[in-house]
């Protein structure tokens, strides 16, 4: 019994890798970049990446239930372009456009899940196809042009500061994050998400309607990605067909780094929070250091590989440690 309660520093670190990586990054940037710790800079950094964290919060639900959605980036681009067109060409009011953008995103994610269920294919496979479809759609709709000069009312959410100091986007991000953290950890629905990722058949036989669950997860994902696009386009003040591209990989890297298992059913949203911030800091840092964009891709790929590799390494290490401990106690008993 006392063994179990022992203060195990190795375990604490390995359970919270993302937080320790974040700490190291923060110290690093604090030393090498002058104004890093200024309130303004931190708020700026958070507001730039609020969309990423909001998207990640929604996508975490998908990955916990062991689905993987590759279409996120192009769906975001498509929605962004459509929103911009509705604002500029159709002259629709901002509120209505925001509602339409979010509703469309939810619809698209429902469609992805519908196809996955009806065709009995994994979400990964379905979204490889739909990703390509939306890649085409975004270029067709935008005619490869940038849409600029979005109205101020639309830019409010992405650019405005509350009390002249805290970005609205950051507040939205924190509120949404806290709500979903509660949902995932404390509610039946949240626990069912874990169950679905851990063993869908066991969940089904326990009377959980797993198709309904998957649709609900799709709605959450769509909602969060939709909000993310609104903030992203709003902050940029313009939309291009490439605006969301790569988001799925940044988000996935952050989520895996945050300790969500590639096997599904394991992980914490708080880890995801830290994981996404790590990615944000690194991207930011590489840009500041003037690293060539193609090298940035190489680095990101390596980080994704490291994050997944670490997850598997952890699993093996845990198993081996368990065996070793067992051998020790058995040997002691024998002697």
């Amino acid at each position: 019994m006392e063994n179990k309660k022992r203060f195990d520093i190795g375990k604490i670190i390995s359970d919270n890798v993302a937080w320790f990586v974040l700490l190291i990054l923060v110290i690093f940037f604090g030393i090498f970049s002058e104004n890093f710790f200024s309130f303004r800079n931190i708020m700026n950094l958070l507001s730039q990446n609020a969309y990423l964290l909001i998207a990640a919060t929604g996508i975490t639900f998908v990955m916990m239930s062991s689905g993987m959605d590759l279409s996120v980036g192009y769906v975001m681009s498509t929605i962004g372009i459509i929103g911009a067109k509705l604002l500029m060409d159709a002259g629709m009011p901002t509120i209505l456009v925001i509602v339409i953008m979010i509703a469309l995103t939810i619809l698209i994610e429902l469609l992805n899940t519908f196809l996955s269920i009806k065709l009995n294919l994994s979400l990964l496979v379905v979204t490889i196809a739909t990703m390509t479809i939306f890649q085409g759609a975004t270029y067709i709709i935008s005619e490869s042009k940038t849409i600029t000069n979005l109205p101020d009312s639309f830019k409010y959410l992405g650019q405005k500061y509350l009390f002249d100091s805290i970005p609205v986007a950051v507040i939205i991000m924190i509120v949404l994050f806290l709500i979903m953290n509660f949902v995932l950890n404390k509610t039946y629905f949240g626990r069912y998400v874990y169950a679905l990722g851990g063993n869908p058949e066991a969940a089904r036989l326990a009377g959980i309607n797993i198709n309904k669950m998957r649709y609900m997860i799709a709605v959450i994902e769509g909602l969060f990605i939709g909000i993310a696009v609104v903030l992203l386009i709003g902050r940029l003040g313009s939309a291009v067909s490439t605006v969301g591209v790569g988001t799925e990989f940044s988000v996935m890297t952050g989520i895996f780094l945050g300790g969500v298992s590639i096997r599904g059913g394991e992980g914490k949203l708080s880890g995801v929070f830290a994981g996404i911030l790590c990615i944000a800091l690194l991207t930011n840092g590489m840009q500041l250091a003037g690293i060539n964009i193609y090298y940035q891709y190489v680095v990101r790929g390596l980080i994704l590989l490291a994050a997944i590799g670490y997850d598997v390494y952890q699993l093996n290490r845990r198993n081996n440690m368990k065996k070793k401990k067992l051998e020790e106690t058995r040997e002691a008993k024998r002697a």
Binding site: Y194, A195, G197, G198, N199, G265
Partner: peptide
């Protein structure tokens, strides 16, 4: 029909 990543109690009362 168990979920390895969840606790004993959560498995027992799943659903």
């Amino acid at each position: 029909n168990l979920i390895p990543s969840m606790t004993v109690a959560e498995n027992i009362f799943l659903g």
